[in-house]
Amino acid sequence: MTELIQHLINGLSLGSIYALIALGYTMVFGILQLINFAHGDVYMLGAFIGMYFARVTGAAENPSVFNLLATLLVAMVGCALAGFLIERFAYRPLRRAPRINVLITAVGVSLFLEFAGQLGFGSDPKFFPQVYQPTVDWSMGDIKINPLQVIVFAISIVLMAGLQFLIFKTRTGRAMRAASFNHDLASLMGIPTDRVISLTFMAGSALAGAAGVLVGMIYPKIEPLMGVMPGLKAFVSAVLGGIGNITGAVVGAITLGLAEEFLVGYWAPTFRDALAFGLLILILLFKPTGLFGVHKSEKV
């Protein structure tokens, strides 16, 4: 029984990490219908920005909640800037090009970040400084809970709610939704679509940056290729929940996290990655709109 509950906790924690990354994927897709493959690498950038910030300011020497928040903030701002630059220089020039061109560019940006990262940061794994040491222990006997896991879970739920609010309750959100229906028409109505798209990218990238720091806290080994697998897993999560749907991304990610955890714990550890991609194939075959997606006829 303890084992089952422990697996449940581990799975929720893993799922909430996928959720943080999946939110950015789904947001960008919702507005642009673009699968931003560079998203996983922005998450990697976030981890490195956090690491350098913590090293330079010496935040690692005196861990505190303040330092954690400061590191998070810096990584989020840094990634938002990176997201802005990527959108401005890689995607915006292709706004009128066929969608496949943008998709290929996204793969290119992803490879660029991965290999520029290896060049700039060095490709050996780095230690992520522990800017916050949990002082409380929420373990119940043999059921071990790391407060950081709870924090990550809470943050992904809060961010999900925040995004939901931003998109459905604010003017900016309305502009985003309008732009997602039809760019030209939206701009005719006086909506600055380019600015709205920039903003979407920045928000999505900031989320990835937050994920980078939080993952660094839980798994303190970071390297330039760390974004590849979580990026793909988050993409699967987003598709599973119905890409473009905010709640769907979180539910999909947590489902995937739990499924992986139980598969590895009780059955076949080596099928961890096969599960995610097997799931992707099944979803695309039988319910391409995902769990929460609405069917929308579309020209491709």
Binding site: T2, E3, Q6, H7, N10, G11, S13, L14, D142, V215, Y219, K221, M226, M229, E260, E261, F262, V264, G265, Y266, P269, T270, R272, D273
Partner: peptide, 20 residues
């Protein structure tokens, strides 16, 4: 006898099984 693949970052499920 549990296993993982190089590049994984989460080993808690294997370790939970080992702990039992």
């Amino acid at each position: 006898d549990q296993s993982y693949s190089a590049g994984d970052m989460d080993f808690k499920s294997q370790l939970t099984a080992i702990r039992s």
